[in-house]
Design a protein around this nucleic acid. Sequence first.
DNA 1: CGTTGGTGATCTACGTTGTATAGATCTACA
DNA 2: TGTAGATCTATACAACGTAGATCACCAACG
Lengths: 210, 210
Amino acid sequence: MSDRRQEILDAALAIADEKGLSSVTMRAVAERVGVTPMALYPHVRDKDGLLDGMLGRLLGRLRLDIHGDWRERLGVLAHAMRALAREHPGATALLFARPTVSPDAVRVVDAIYTALLEAGVPAADVPRIERLASTLILGFAVSEASGRFGTGTLNQRAGRGRLPEGDLPGHHALAETLDADVDWSAEFEADLADITTLIESYARHPPYVP
Amino acid sequence: MSDRRQEILDAALAIADEKGLSSVTMRAVAERVGVTPMALYPHVRDKDGLLDGMLGRLLGRLRLDIHGDWRERLGVLAHAMRALAREHPGATALLFARPTVSPDAVRVVDAIYTALLEAGVPAADVPRIERLASTLILGFAVSEASGRFGTGTLNQRAGRGRLPEGDLPGHHALAETLDADVDWSAEFEADLADITTLIESYARHPPYVP
DNA sequence: CGTTGGTGATCTACGTTGTATAGATCTACA
DNA sequence: TGTAGATCTATACAACGTAGATCACCAACG
């Protein structure tokens, strides 16, 4: 991890945040670093390598030296992940686009493993619950950043009016609720609480203590 | 929705399934349809329009005229979604990549709304629970199709060995569990059961009846 | 019958992308 | 001073999305 590589990845992240992921081209990154496009290749190998590196650098920013009981640690981690996604909406799309192999990602997974073990989740269930929780949290973050929530579901009355009402009994019955604005932070909090409840329901005694 | 448009979208889906999403180029699709690249534009407007159309066509394949109680309907829907994702792994990546505005997507959401209402979930909670459930199910499908599960988390011993053991206490404690193969169908079933339990915990009486 | 208008396909061309290849430049140590 | 290695540059090419102009068809009307 030379300085130059970090510099390149940070430049790519900055471009993604400012002008979207599709504006991250080898030429644009190179210009930002102050170098010719071909000079990037020894450091990132590929365009795909660049994208993977960006994702790795993103996850590397997550601070894992957190303390408190498992509930606190999980909460802090989840909030940090969402904050990261809102800070870097462009790069967030990569979370579900590319398999995550970086050591940083593994460390995050490990932090969740230990939290679940401490909560008393049986070892046989821990990997699945970790995948469930991270899929949900990452999915929420990506959906929020990409606009999958919000505009896509005809929540607003104007959009809903375009379809025949008889075809959408559910939307019809929920009309008032759907017209209200959504507090995404509150929704994230509620989802997190649901995950915590789910974990508790799997907890057995005695819990694992490291 | 002319015949030609469907033909184009199906050709694009076929290419994505066979050779990956990055092989879906205007030229490749055109060749498959037996036409020049520019002939596609009146039908799909854009490359982005083509991708959106592919996603719409994918969701349009979901059969929604299902019966039984809410549990059955939700289960059938979830299984259909996963089957679709496994049938079209290339196009599945689009689920989290682009906001879903197609009428077909709205119909799917509506089917979940009515199931949740029938289950007795209060109207105020229905939209959030729908987002939670669909995020989890879609996230699972996308993760499975893209390889985010499986190769990325150093589940296999060979990968784990590359990192110092002291840094990964969770992985260390779960060594035996992580070395076993994962039955993804069983995991999907278990996740679905967890979602169902969550829904039941929100249910109040009397339930909504259409 | 000839003309006309509109729809869709085509042909050509331009700018941008990722990257292979070969050469230039700098640094550090003998 | 010279030489090896690492780093950056210059040039080039194939493939991409798509703008613009043109052309082939075919139904409808006088």
